[in-house]
Amino acid sequence: MSAEDTVRTALLEFVTRSFNVAEKDVRLDQSLIDQGIIDSFGLMEITAFIEQQFALKVREQDMTREAFGSMNKMARFVASRIQAPS
């Protein structure tokens, strides 16, 4: 399993547990906001989860739709930061 897959699995587990949504109802390539799964607090919760779970700092410049715009994008962002810490 790649680092990206591992991150995606952990994120998916967090999202389904925290936001009361079934795994089958989470589309991995679409924004969680657009799917109606999270609101602004949800976005903050996911950011905090990423920082705690993967021991990395989400910097202001990381807070973008490119990095957080879907589960796949978040997994890619986190995996890239784990593999190449700044």
Binding site: I33, G42, L43, M63
Partner: peptide, 14 residues
């Protein structure tokens, strides 16, 4: 969310 960075542009999508 006891402490969070209030990044307006990051949160405005939501």
């Amino acid at each position: 969310a006891i402490v969070f960075r209030n990044h307006y542009r990051f949160l405005e999508d939501s």
